[in-house]
Amino acid sequence: MTARLVFRDIGRTFRTSRDTTVAVRGVNLSLERGSFTAMIGRSGCGKSTLLHIAAGLDSGYEGSFAREPAGATVAYLFQQPRLLPWQSARNNVAFVLEARGVAKQEARQRADEMINLVGLSAAAGKFPAQLSGGMQQRVSLARALAVDPDLLLMDEPFSALDELTAAHLREELVSLCAQKERTVLFATHNTQEACYLADRVIVLSAHPGTVVADVNVEASRPRCIDNPRLAEIAAHVRSLIDRSAPSGVPEAAA
């Protein structure tokens, strides 16, 4: 059962003793079952805030958010691998399964299968410190897929990796996602990445984060990374982002 997400008039304000920051305001968005949606925008456009809300990590928002069904299984892939450094690659994957009530033996076995699936069978017994950044992120991907999520949330999962590794992992993600239908929400600030992966690209403006455009990526799958149609859409998305930048405010290009 894949999940459906509905954000209705979502606002989120962070208050500290010094100042208040409006991270997102008036976001209306619904993600259909089995859709792959990318959110794109400059730093501070509220991508992570929306992902946190979708994951149930943040409940201090205004408006209403619904995840249907409420008991949908969620997995989160972060920019950093966020592995437990004292556990082997295999046990990092098995840990989330065990913690969710899977029997130890079965969890180990499923963890091994997932580790194989992301091509790390030789490194299953190694500690995260013994793995490269790309391999660690693969373990993290294996962990996310191991729980067989109805909803997969990803927060710039490949932006901390070198381009070759990132390209490889993107292809893996596409093929792993094609095996089973699941709803995916993916944050990035890479237009090519967004258009290559997603069915739909949501363009967000910053300060505060609001939806400025909703682009359908009409290209058949499997896609090729240098499909000219994708490049066209990516250029279009880029122009939308540029237009959304408040004039006179120099933004650090991501």
């Binding site: 994951a55 149930g56 990590l57 299984t73 969620v74 997995a75 989160y76 972060f78 950093q80 966020r82 437990l84 989330v96 913690a99 969710r100 962990r143 729980v147 949330l153």
Partner: peptide, 11 residues
């Protein structure tokens, strides 16, 4: 960050 990860996986 590790706690956040664990919470995201509903542990």
């Amino acid at each position: 960050e590790l706690q956040e990860m664990a919470r995201a996986f509903a542990i």
